[in-house]
Amino acid sequence: MKVTFMRPATPETELLSAPPGQAVRIVRIAQDDEHTAWLRAVGMHEDAEVTVLRRAPFGGPIHLRSSDGGEFAIHRDLARCIRVTTLEPRASAEGAPDPARSGRVA
């Protein structure tokens, strides 16, 4: 069971502006090939789903869960280069009854 429902025609935004708890789908990654390859290696590529879990204090990095179930922190500048559309919003990242990290309920 995958708890993601596509909302049709949601506007495109930066991953950086997605609030904690928000599930998004990556539309475009405006980065050079090397960085794009790095992101791909951790399951972040066009059409992949990502959930923003939290932001570090003082404008630090962003904590995400990729569609592969892995969790990563990426720098804000990188998050600014990733264009996304929002999916079904979730209640709250912190303490939300999320499926566990390895935890996509298959």
Binding site: L53, R54, R55, A56, P57, H63, E71, E94, G95, A96, P97, D98, P99, A100, R101, S102, G103, V105, A106
Partner: peptide, 28 residues
């Protein structure tokens, strides 16, 4: 990967441990 026929509450607790711990340890 599939769930065992019966997922015990203990197993569910283990699955969500990291998420719950992070809610405290990464609190802003």
């Amino acid at each position: 990967l599939s769930d065992a026929p019966q997922v015990s509450p203990e197993a569910t607790r283990r699955r969500t441990f990291t998420t719950r711990a992070d809610a405290v340890l990464l609190h802003s």
